[in-house]
Nucleic acid binder design. Structure first.
Lengths: 63, 63
DNA sequence: TGCTAGTAGGGTAATTAGGGAT
DNA sequence: CGTGTCCTAATTACCCTACTAG
């Protein structure tokens, strides 16, 4: 299927994952660093899969 | 739930817990001693659980 | 319809990254 | 060897008012 429904997240939800201000998420979207989908009223929604992919940790390489 | 959201801490918060300069926390991350997650702007966030684990006191082995 | 929380804007202050000298 | 400090550039946080989501 070419049109799979995506789980969307609100700015506040994305901000909570990254521990940043919702405004910062908006800035990322404006800069094109984040895919944003607009509601008819102009509010942004974000793809959950993309957020999870960007949320990668660098684990300690112990010792 | 296979992946639960992690509570993240800012460099300043981690530094306050350890009573060190934020720059020192950055060094720990660069050396791979600390797990770090990056914002899209390059700022680091740290896992609260990991910090708490590292904050465990070494009790005096009394007598 | 009204109501409340959240978001879009824009401006300005505070943090952070990175390097380098100590 | 580890940490704190100085510097500049970049990123993020907080302030406001108006509008949208539900």
């Amino acid at each position: 299927m070419t049109t799979e429904p995506e789980n969307l997240m609100t700015p506040a939800e994305v901000a909570a994952r990254f521990r940043v201000d919702p405004k910062t998420v908006t800035r990322w979207a404006n800069q094109g660093r984040l895919t944003s989908i607009r509601t008819l009223g102009g509010h942004r929604r974000y793809r959950e899969t993309e957020i999870n992919a960007l949320l990668t940790a660098t684990p300690p390489h112990g010792r």
